[in-house]
């Protein structure tokens, strides 16, 4: 077979590009520690979400000011259910400098939970629990959108993640805060 030497040079360069891309992605995963959403969250019956250990008592948590469960001093978890066209709870609040584990599932169709301007972004699939953990350093108000078409009111589906200062947290959100032991469940 005849292959021109210039084309051989280009083929080598193309391989370099491929290696560059794959190694960047591998570096992001291993070096920078960015984990993909995976199968850790497990399965759930979408008709009996509250009965699943991960979601036990989540309606009560949604009734509190912060709508999150405290795991320890700086770690919180948020159980969120997506149902066209709402997230429940729609708004959650955490203090600055906290680590938050999200458990998100759907009661009807496929949705997504995308915290705009961040890389917290996951598909939400009935029968599956999407589990992902993120660190929130600075106070900020993040908008959340459902970015997967889920029905005729899809465009109305939004939420909010408030990251508040230490002082504001102490003042407004700790009174009715539910801890992991109080809520039950096995996380």
């Amino acid at each position: 077979m005849e292959i021109h030497k210039y084309e051989k040079i280009w083929f080598a360069a193309a391989l370099v590009l491929v290696v560059l891309f794959i190694s960047s992605v591998a570096y992001g995963a291993v070096g920078a520690g960015i984990q993909m959403v995976d199968d850790e969250g497990g399965e759930i019956n979408p008709n009996e979400i509250g009965d699943h250990p991960t979601f036990e008592g989540y309606q009560d948590v949604a009734g509190t000011e912060a709508s999150v469960t405290q795991v320890n001093e700086s770690h919180y978890e948020a159980q969120i259910q997506a149902n066209h066209p709402n997230f429940f709870p729609g708004e959650i609040t955490v203090p600055e400098g906290s680590t938050v584990t999200f458990y998100i599932t759907a009661g009807d169709v496929i949705h997504s939970y995308d915290i705009v301007g961040t890389n917290v972004n996951t598909m939400v699939i009935p029968g599956q629990i999407a589990e992902l953990t993120a660190e929130f350093e600075e106070p900020n108000e993040y908008g959340v959108v459902c970015s997967e078409y889920c029905g005729e009111l899809h465009h109305e589906m939004e939420g909010m993640v408030n990251v508040v200062s230490e002082e504001e947290w102490e003042e407004n959100y700790t009174d009715d805060l539910i801890t992991i032991d109080e809520r039950g469940g096995d996380n």
């Binding site: 995963a29 984990q35 993909m36 959403v37 995976d38 199968d39 969250g41 399965e43 997504s112 972004n121 996951t122 598909m123 939400v124 699939i125 029968g127 599956q128 629990i129 999407a130 589990e131």
Partner: peptide, 8 residues
Amino acid sequence: YLDPGIAE
């Protein structure tokens, strides 16, 4: 890539 239920 962002689906739960598929290993990394």
